[in-house]
Design a protein around this nucleic acid. Structure first.
Length: 785
DNA sequence: CCACATAATCTTTTT
DNA sequence: GATTATGTGG
């Protein structure tokens, strides 16, 4: 245990020659890590492959700068992408320097640091420092209002579409003023054919300013505007931050890149102490605006930058590493690293083919049970899927077998409807100009204030140039709105007044309870529970209780609200219980597990067809990096699965193994014999493929009978999942009338057995199976008897 | 204004 | 298939 040192951290840090903890923190670093830690002056790029001790280097470097007396903690800017990463950094730096975690004021996410800076200078971009941070949902509602007000067809031009456009510009650091002519040209063209994307962006920004609000993108963007327009402010921060540390640099977007560059661009080049750590092979957020290019061109941006490669992997076995490394070489645009390890041998990466998603879940669950009965922990096991919808089959199976599991990265606590409603109440009480919050709760619970009334209020507010609440106060004095709606509005306003006047007398948690109670919000869910038997209502009420608890951890409402939008994320709780982890590949980045399952490696699913369609080769390469991330999460064993059939959007589709499976090196892969495997679809069996070894008769038979080659070749050409002809030629209703099925007919289905058709529409059949019960199936999957 | 039926949509995710 | 957004009848 480290001795507790009560002196302020700065004092200890500045002791220089004899730090309290000596230099023990440097022990055990390999030469490259040590170099990356100790080269603290001048720009530095650390290319850190998976499992090479990236976080350790970053935290040790932080400690080293302090120990060398080069800077105070307040002079080091250290940014990460996620709160989780920031928290981990904070803890580990704290352990190294034996300091209280509060002593690191500028360690945080890009967004939280930018928000902090923006609060100091908000007035420079026309905001008050009390600005609210809108989340995606608020943003969309606002955009929807704007589209409506501008009389644009919301169906053709959705708020989401516009939101993507605007986010894209913000990610690139573009304010409306900086848009190139032609940007947004295609969005909602007016009568002269001129796109209105740009002008809508401007309107949106004006609305945000009027609401004293920012969206996530604005946090960085406003920082940029301030830095560019007020050199003195920029200079202040440039001087303040003597050292900059950046985690996951491959995930930075242009705005973040510009932000960093401005902050690092000190007059004296020898003092540009920017250290970025990243791995171009793990860049998986391109779809969110990340530019791999940032990391690829670091050396050009900072001439004389030192580059350190961390290539020694401490995580995985030789085979796992070999498989992942080989796979990633198929990518063109990469800086190139060669990971190596001392861990010789181990188990080869297992590739298994199974019949369908249920079989996949069944086989994997069985493997997990074996693992556990051999004395290992569920905690050691992760199932990593490409898309969250693939999780359900596993959840169902785990529940059926009574296997404990946890889903990581599901819907976030603070994005739940009930939590957002509760926040809206608090926001409304706190500010009489928070139109978005006011509008959200004006009829929740139902007060008899409908869309028409709200619309009236909005037009009035716009006309008067005041907030929605102010307009409502005016209008309820007139006859413009009558009857039930007017009474309800008046009562609602009185409620708000009463809550506001209660603010000074109550603790913020008591206030929240009072509001939720008196507004009828809690009662609404209680009713839903009793009356409708809404299965989610209970959970919602629990969440509200949790919310009060979370609030209690802050001293004031202000303190809580400040953190809620950016920093606070609920602990994914109870890491002490022994549970299987179930998450997406994206969610798994930065984690490691002894045993990793990678299901769903089929063309169309992974690589995702949508990715390919939208981003072509770049999309494919990002998918491949995702595969790389997946495999490299495994320490001891990695198992890849693919299915022959998968249900997508409720339709059964035949599927073929992912091309990534073909790209795995045979010497590191074992094709598992008890589940069967069919070879790669190039017809070239010399790679990882081992041909049929299946024991399941129906499985082998069905594939043997399959007109495989033509079907798969067609598939390869079209790159579409529609050619579902692998099992049997499908009788599309229009094309092949002779093969149509009639109600009452007896049929056989490979999976469900014998049954009788109860109804038929198009190529979809409802069948009453003798053993499996009623199912909907495609006619291509059944045989006439 | 609300409850209910039908139609459209369907990655990945942080902040 | 399942959720969500919209449209229609009461």
């Amino acid at each position: 245990m480290t001795e507790i040192d009560s002196r302020p951290i700065s004092e200890r840090a500045m002791m220089g020659t004899r730090p309290v903890h000596h230099n023990t923190y440097l022990d055990g670093l390999n030469p490259e890590q040590s170099e990356a830690v100790q080269a603290i002056d001048g720009p530095l790029l650390v290319l850190a492959g998976a499992g090479t001790g990236k976080t350790r280097v970053l935290t040790t470097r932080f400690a080293h700068i302090l120990a060398q007396g080069k800077a105070f903690p307040s002079q080091i800017l250290c940014v990460t992408f996620t709160n989780k990463a920031a928290r981990e950094m904070r803890e580990r730096v704290g352990e190294l320097i034996g300091a209280e975690v509060e002593g690191l004021p500028w360690l945080g996410t890009f967004h939280s640091v930018a928000a902090k800076i923006l609060r100091f200078h908000a007035e420079l971009v026309g905001l008050k420092s009390s600005f609210t941070i809108l989340d995606t949902d608020d943003q969309l509602r606002l955009l929807k209002q704007i589209l409506k007000a501008e009389d644009i067809d919301e169906k053709r031009w959705t708020p989401r579409h516009l939101g993507h456009l605007i986010d894209g510009w913000k990610n690139k650091g573009k304010t409306p003023e900086k848009l190139a002519t032609g940007d947004g040209f295609g969005f909602a063209p007016d009568s002269s054919g001129m796109g209105r994307g740009g002008s809508l962006y401007r309107i949106y920004q004006d609305r945000l300013r009027a609401l004293n609000a920012v969206d996530f993108g604005d946090l960085l963007l406003h920082n940029l505007t301030i830095f560019q327009n007020y050199p003195d402010v920029l200079a202040k921060y440039q001087n303040k931050f003597k050292y900059l540390l950046v985690d996951e640099y491959q995930d930075t977007n242009v705005a973040q890149y510009l932000w960093l560059r401005l902050l690092a661009q000190r007059a004296d080049k020898s003092e540009q102490n920017l250290c970025v750590v990243g791995d171009d092979d793990q860049s998986i957020y391109g779809w969110r605006g990340a530019e791999v290019d940032n990391i690829l061109r670091f050396e050009k941006d900072f001439p004389g930058a030192k580059v350190v490669r961390l290539e020694r992997n401490y995580r995985s076995t030789e085979h796992i590493l070999g498989a992942a490394s080989c796979l990633i070489t198929a990518n063109q645009d990469r800086l190139g690293k060669t990971l190596w390890t001392d861990e010789e041998g181990g188990e080869k990466v297992v590739v298994s083919g199974v019949w369908d998603g249920d079989a996949e879940a069944r086989v994997i669950s069985g493997e997990i049970e074996n693992w556990q009965s051999n004395g290992r922990l569920y905690n050691d096991v992760a199932v990593l899927v490409r898309a969250s919808r693939q999780m359900r089959a596993f959840e169902e199976r785990f529940i059926a077998l009574g296997l404990p599991y946890r889903v990581i990265g599901g819907p976030r606590f603070f994005e739940r409807m009930e939590i957002r409603d509760a926040h809206a109440y608090l926001r409304t009480v706190r500010s009489d100009t928070d139109d978005l919050a006011f509008e959200r709760i004006i009829n929740v619970p139902k007060r008899g204030i409908g869309a028409v009334t709200v619309q009236k209020l909005q037009t009035a507010a716009r006309a008067m140039g005041v907030s929605l609440e102010a307009a409502t106060r005016q209008i309820t004095k007139t006859d413009e709105i009558r009857g039930k709606a007017r009474t309800a509005l008046r009562a609602f306003l009185l409620d708000i007044d009463r809550w506001r006047s209660a603010v000074p007398d109550l603790r913020h948690t008591e206030l929240a309870e009072k509001i939720l109670d008196e507004s009828g919000y809690t009662a609404m869910w209680q009713n839903a529970n009793m009356h409708n038997g809404d299965p989610k209502a209970d959970g919602r009420l629990d969440n509200l209780k949790e919310l009060i608890q979370a609030m209690g951890e802050f001293d004031t409402l202000e303190g809580y609200m400040d953190h809620v939008s950016l920093v606070l994320d609920m602990e994914t709780g109870g890491a002490d219980d022994d549970k299987i982890s179930l998450m997406t590949l994206h969610g798994a980045k930065g984690l490691e597990f002894p045993l990793v399952f990678l299901p769903g490696w089929e063309e169309g699913s992974f690589p995702s067809q949508k990715s390919l369609d939208e981003s072509g080769t770049a999309g494919l390469e990002e998918e491949r990096r995702l595969a790389y991330v997946g495999i490299t999460r495994a320490r001891e064993r990695a198992e890849i699965y693919f299915t022959a059939n998968r249900q997508i959007y409720g339709q059964w589709q035949a599927s073929i193994p992912s091309r990534f499976i073909d790209e795995l090196p045979p010497e590191h892969v074992e094709v598992k014999s008890d589940t069967g495997y069919f070879g790669n679809h190039n017809g070239n069996m010399g790679n990882a493929a081992g041909g049929y070894t299946g024991v399941s008769e129906s499985f082998v038979e069905s594939f043997d009978k399959t007109p495989r080659s033509p079907g798969w070749q067609r598939f390869q050409k079209n790159k579409t999942i529609e050619g579902t002809a692998t099992r049997k030629p499908i009788s599309h209703s229009g094309r092949d009338k002779g093969n149509s099925f009639k109600v009452g007919e007896r049929i056989f289905h490979q999976k469900f057995g014998y049954g009788r058709i109860t109804s038929a529409s198009g190529n979809k059949l409802d069948v009453a199976f003798e053993k499996a019960g009623n199912k909907k199936v495609l006619d291509g999957f059944v045989e006439k008897l």
